[in-house]
């Protein structure tokens, strides 16, 4: 039985396409007078956030509420690695409250995996971003957004640019887009690509300019200025010059190519304001689509006696 969504690798192509087609139906809800569906009435969804992420939390909250679920927000910021309340104790508390699903954001890679597989809780677990590991619903909303603009993703060229090493968005997208038949190119300075990436199902490049003209979608990843102090690149200025998307580079894109960003953006660092606000930018739409995709995931996991999609066990 499939119970959890922990990694984009948990989704077969059929699973992923089911989520996307379900999200398409969910998205039409936005046009209706009553933006609510009864599917999860009586179910309790807990948003368990050990890291600040207002956007993701609100997106899951809106998704659960539009499906008529009861939502409990549990912000446990700071206690992830300290010796305060442990992940396990928090999980046991939520279990006692009768959670049917736990949407978890955690600073430690694998924390949702632990939550799902340690026998602490019986709930369905949805990974809302864990450390530098994965963020599968972000990848689903990105794929959904691409599909709306580009149609089926088979053979489409997707270029993902930036801090791949620390990016859970890049990991989940690389896996999911490959599953959906797209050709993914990861572009970053060598210091920001993980060891062993040559075995991922992607192309890699150090040269943004050569990757852009063939792209059907360009996804810019956030680059934290703190990385500069880790010596991953010399200066923010040099990073922007080599890996930032500005108006000049945007001009080399094909007419239909869209520009994406998972947010929050560092304008002037990886993306200039004129690109972020251009007609190609689908960044705001990504946010809208996030709610529909998360509704689809919650519905398919919780809407029946057992889930229609998901991972192991």
């Amino acid at each position: 039985m499939k119970r959890h969504l922990l990694s984009a690798a948990d989704l077969s192509r059929d699973d992923a396409e089911l989520v996307l087609s379900t999200a398409e139906e969910m998205r039409s809800l936005a046009d209706r007078p009553i933006k609510k569906l009864p599917a999860l009435r009586g179910r309790t969804v807990v948003n368990l956030f050990f890291e600040d992420s207002t956007r993701t939390r609100i997106s899951f909250e809106a998704a659960a509420k539009r499906l008529s679920a009861d939502v409990i927000n549990f912000a446990a910021k700071g206690s992830s690695l300290s010796k305060g309340e442990s992940l396990k104790d928090t999980a046991l508390t939520l279990e006692a409250m009768g959670a049917d699903a736990v949407v978890v954001r955690h600073g430690a890679s694998g924390a949702p995996h632990r939550l799902a597989h340690s026998g602490w809780v019986r709930s369905n677990v949805v990974n809302a971003g864990d450390g530098t590991h994965e963020h599968p619903t972000q990848a689903l909303l990105d794929a959904f957004t691409m599909t709306r603009h580009l149609g089926a993703l088979d053979g489409r060229r997707i270029v993902i640019v930036g801090d791949v090493l620390h990016s859970r968005v890049a990991r989940s997208n690389a896996l999911l887009l490959h599953t959906l038949g797209a050709e993914v190119t990861l572009v970053a300075p060598p210091t920001l690509l993980p060891v062993g990436i040559e075995n991922w199902p992607v192309e890699t490049s150090y040269d943004l300019d050569s990757a852009l003209p063939k792209a059907d979608a360009v996804m810019m990843l956030r680059v934290q200025r703190e990385r500069m102090h880790g010596g991953f690149f010399p200066t923010a200025r040099e990073y922007s010059r080599r890996y930032g998307l500005d108006g000049r580079r945007m001009a080399s894109l094909q007419d239909h190519t869209i520009v994406m960003h998972p947010g929050p953006m560092v304008r002037g660092m990886e993306i200039t304001a004129d690109v972020a606000d251009s007609d190609r930018s689908v960044i705001v739409e990504q946010v809208t689509n996030g709610v529909a995709v998360r509704m689809a995931v919650l519905y398919l996991l919780l809407g029946g006696s057992e889930p229609a999609v998901g991972g192991e066990e």
Binding site: S21, A39, L300, G303, E306
Partner: peptide
Amino acid sequence: LDVTMYRDDLRLKPARALLHTEI
């Protein structure tokens, strides 16, 4: 008009794919 999510036996079977609603 897809009625899947309004069915009274929704919880009795595995989660079902939605069908298209177009008003």
